[in-house]
């Protein structure tokens, strides 16, 4: 990641207001190609709003600057340009694993048989071998989430937005999924913007961790994670990890107090 390289996503003075409520206020954010950027922040800080805009679902306030692959863009233009994975898996109940995974390709107008064959090949990598014909109601939460991830990966876009994809999973499944996600990410060489409220997860996965302020959301802190890859599970007890975690937790704590603390404004 040389500094000379053009960022894939570049947000400046990025704000969003819903009626009376200001969700985002002056977010500054750059994501380099191939980078894994994690975003943590207190609940209700506007993380999901940020994602909805980058996914093209909502327009930011006037005056916000958004550049995508070097071009200045409206949010609307990003529809179909980034692969977006919301918090819930949102699988379609009437489609089996394969057909759920190829949904974005179908919408793109790809040949369905080819898309199915491709999905079929990807199944083992996503721990879904032998589950091609299963329907969502027959799968566990972790599996459903992997189907949703596979759907996101099949939508081959350079930028992937993952909104707390492991939030609803139990702790053990979650760590397994994190390690697995890193493997898949390294293999597929995508750029990832990843929301979480779990600091461990943010450090473990990210090249760079951003801490957001309480609402209205802005970037409070940005830290490079200079930990070697591939990362293993025992990394979480390394001194560098701990000291970074302490710094991030302090920042989040401070922001959370603004939301819950008595009249600290």
């Amino acid at each position: 990641m040389t500094p000379a390289e053009e960022p894939i996503l570049d947000l400046r003075k990025f704000s969003k207001t819903f009626g009376e409520v200001q969700a985002l206020d002056g977010v500054e954010l750059t994501v380099q190609p191939g980078e894994f950027v994690t975003v943590v922040g207190p609940s209700g800080c506007g993380k999901s709003t940020l994602f909805n805009i980058v996914a093209g679902l909502e327009e930011p306030d006037a005056g916000s600057v958004m550049r995508f692959e070097g071009q200045s863009v409206h949010a609307k233009q990003l529809l179909g340009k980034v692969s977006f994975m919301p918090q819930r898996d949102l699988l379609l109940a009437w489609r089996n694993v394969i057909d759920n995974a190829i949904l974005p390709l179908e919408i793109e107008g790809a040949n369905r048989a080819e898309a199915r064959a491709e999905a079929q090949r990807m199944l083992p990598e996503f721990g879904l071998a032998g589950f091609a014909d299963k329907y969502p109601h027959e799968l566990s939460g972790g599996m459903r989430q992997r189907v949703a991830l596979m759907r996101t990966f099949m939508f081959k876009r350079d930028l992937m937005l993952l909104d707390e994809p492991f939030g609803a999973l139990d702790a053990l499944t979650r760590t397994m999924m994190q390690r697995w996600l890193l493997e898949v990410w390294q293999k597929h060489k995508r750029t990832v913007l990843f929301i979480t409220h779990d600091v461990d997860e943010a450090i473990f996965l990210g090249d760079k961790v951003l801490v957001m302020t309480a609402r209205p959301g802005a970037i409070k802190l940005e830290r490079k994670v200079d930990l070697p890859r591939p990362r293993s599970a025992d990394l979480v007890t390394a001194p560098e990890f701990i000291s970074l975690k302490r710094e991030l937790l302090d920042a989040i704590e401070e922001e959370s107090m603004k939301t819950f603390g008595p009249s600290s404004h």
Partner: peptide, 26 residues
């Protein structure tokens, strides 16, 4: 229909017609 599912399909670039066929009708 779950609005989040509508948004997901829109993020894939689906038209209203496709959303109707692939999501709302089922």
């Amino acid at each position: 229909v779950d609005e989040k599912q509508v948004q997901l399909l829109r993020s894939f670039g689906a038209s209203e017609r496709e959303i109707m066929r692939k999501l709302r009708f089922p």
